[in-house]
Design a protein around this nucleic acid. Structure first.
Lengths: 124, 124
DNA sequence: TTTACAGTTGAACAGTTGATGAAGTGTAGC
DNA sequence: GCTACACTTCATCAACTGTTCAACTGTAAA
């Protein structure tokens, strides 16, 4: 019987099919990481934390946000092991987990400063 | 008079408020970039394209996805200038816009391979 | 021109996400 | 113990996202 594959690509190709050689687990981890930092409010939090650890109140005050809002954002970042927390009396201080995340962010921010917003502009 | 600000953080802090010194436009661009690549299917596409340019059919066949699905994913990546396209007869070949994106991705994938999935597992 | 191929776009739908106020947890001081 | 403070978690809800099929555009060959 002939199965109707609706639209599922299945035909002659100009080049042989090249299956991804990347580790699926790494791909998943990387995508999760990118997704977590792919949000302006969260990325801003990280940019703040890049200057040193800070407690939730500080971060909330600096961004004029509600505590619960900031707390939720930090939760997302913590779930991906991007930040860690440490209790200090009544306060809970957050900081970036490791240098590689710091590097990644600054690297991207640096490149982002170079390239104009996104559309048009053409190039050089 | 005491103003009721519901929950909006406003109290004594252990440290002075440190406002973000980062460029908002760069932050926005970086967040958009991360968001676009923060998705396994899209990141997989990029991983494939890192090996060289490919047309939509190839990418679709390699991932056993529908043409329209892949096309939509590429659209998102193209909207963020992560990939570019070039027509070649009936085919449209996509490739990564520049080396810096390639670096970013491989860098992240390399680090992702090092760190264990995310939660638990303990450590080494 | 007609047909087939390669890809894009639009609309609809399901699933996910993020912000918020209220309620809960944990710590410090009285 | 009780109260205040510093957060966290829960539940809700609106807004957004990703996938899909159908329809459409553009190219090539007959």
């Amino acid at each position: 019987m002939q199965r109707k594959k609706t639209e599922t690509a299945e035909h002659a190709h100009p080049r042989p099919v090249r299956l991804p050689s990347v580790n699926e687990a790494a791909l998943d981890r990387a995508a999760r990481l990118f997704k977590a930092i792919g949000d302006v409010p969260r990325l801003r939090l990280l940019a703040m934390l890049a200057h040193g650890e800070a407690c939730v109140s500080e971060l909330a005050a600096a961004g004029e946000e509600q505590l619960s809002t900031v707390s939720q954002r930090l939760r997302v970042l913590r779930a991906e092991d991007i930040v860690v927390r440490r209790r200090d009396g009544k306060h809970i201080n957050y900081s970036l987990t490791d240098q590689h995340v710091v590097d990644l962010i600054f690297n991207a921010l640096a490149h982002a400063s170079e390239m104009p917003a996104g559309k048009s502009t053409g190039r050089t």
